[in-house]
Nucleic acid binder design. Structure first.
Lengths: 214, 214
DNA sequence: GGGTTACTTTACGCATCGGTAGATAAGGTG
DNA sequence: CACCTTATCTACCGATGCGTAAAGTAACCC
């Protein structure tokens, strides 16, 4: 059994991180409503009042989790996309790799963002985050195709949805790991997605309607 | 104030439908946890005990909503796909049309299924429903490409995710209606999706190492 | 050692909400 | 009209969980 925690005094910033990490873990497992502040306290190894000292109310704590994980995900994708003067297809592929890599390495954060918060008072915030990712995808696509952003917006939503669906399969289906084989799963998943949507996206004409032959 | 409802006696089946409809409406707006049984009762125009008489416990009521809406959606998509001896691409397109059509005409049901139930004790059931739709898509794709189902499963998840993303955009973005223009939105959305994923899916079969297994 | 303060323990207020018991009346039947 | 069945309502209980108050304890710094 683990030894009795000898009640260490820590700097407020360190404790704050502990509480936040515990909150992300508990929220990802139990969901917002299912998670109790007591559970967060136990997970963090502290008492309940401390959670309130460092994390604020339950809503504030959850919002903090949301923002931290969202910023992390967005930043990694953004930096992976690289400078705007590079080749758009390569940028898109790298961004997708970063996206899938973030999911596989930080599952809890993704779970909090995508599966636990779609309802309640945080639906708006989660949607805003999703929108930021979609905007990023739309920028990449618009730059690559030479098309105004309004035109590619629905396709950007489609692309992000496709990524979510593929990610969900990879994270939940036990046979998924066997299917992707060896190597970095993020690479395999990104290649899969590019194989599906790449050819179609390339056919979206700059000037006219979508090529739509049967 | 509105006229006091003079406490009409109704047949149990009629009341049961009233309660179920109210439950779908409230659950779609507030989510499972956010919805209270009192709210369902008010929406149905009855008192709370009646909700328990006709709907059972909150869990049972929610499960009933889930199953009814899921069956409706699955049945409409399945019947739209048509007989297995027809052309696979046309079947896929028709199935997608039926899918989008169901969303636009029965928004509340879709909301309950897709956005409110991803957490809590119903995550398993919602995932099972999603899986049934994915399986259906996988069957269509496997039939069209002449490939074992295990190989197309990730692509089926991708396709369904893409449809969800596009649907979410259409249902939430105020500018979406203007973008799709006149005509049945379901047709436009299905065509958009086929334009994005169609070419890519067609190239799946030859690239894989499929022929290795007997 | 002494002081500061991070931290714990314990207990409780309070609101919300699922669920139920007993009373009430609506409608059919003789 | 008397009366019985039962659909329906008003009022309530109990549990859960957020959030906090009060008082004591011990770790780090000088």
């Amino acid at each position: 059994m683990t030894s009795e925690a000898p009640r260490r005094r820590l700097a407020p910033e360190v404790r704050r991180l502990q509480v936040l990490d515990a909150a992300v873990a508990v929220f990802s497992e139990e969901g917002f409503h299912g998670a109790s502040m007591d559970a967060v306290a136990v997970r963090a190894g502290v008492s309940k009042p401390l959670v309130y000292v460092h994390g604020g109310s339950k809503d504030e704590l959850f919002a903090a989790c949301l923002h931290r994980e969202a910023d992390r995900l967005l930043r990694s994708v953004q930096s992976a996309a690289g400078a705007p003067d590079e080749e758009p297809p390569a940028r898109l592929r790298r961004a997708l790799r970063a996206f899938f890599h973030a999911l596989t390495t930080r599952r809890q954060g993704w779970t909090v963002l995508w599966r636990q918060a779609s309802t309640g008072p945080f639906a708006g915030e989660v949607d805003a985050l999703r929108r930021r990712i979609v905007e990023q995808a739309a920028d990449l696509m618009a730059g690559g195709l030479g098309v105004p952003r309004t035109r590619v917006l629905p396709y950007a939503h489609t692309l992000v949805g496709a990524a979510e669906g593929l990610a969900h399969w990879w994270l939940t289906d036990p046979e998924a790991a066997a299917t992707t084989g060896p190597g970095d799963p993020a690479d395999v998943l990104a290649d899969m997605l590019v194989a599906v949507v790449g050819p179609g996206l390339a056919t979206i004409a700059p000037s006219g309607a979508v090529s739509d032959e049967r």
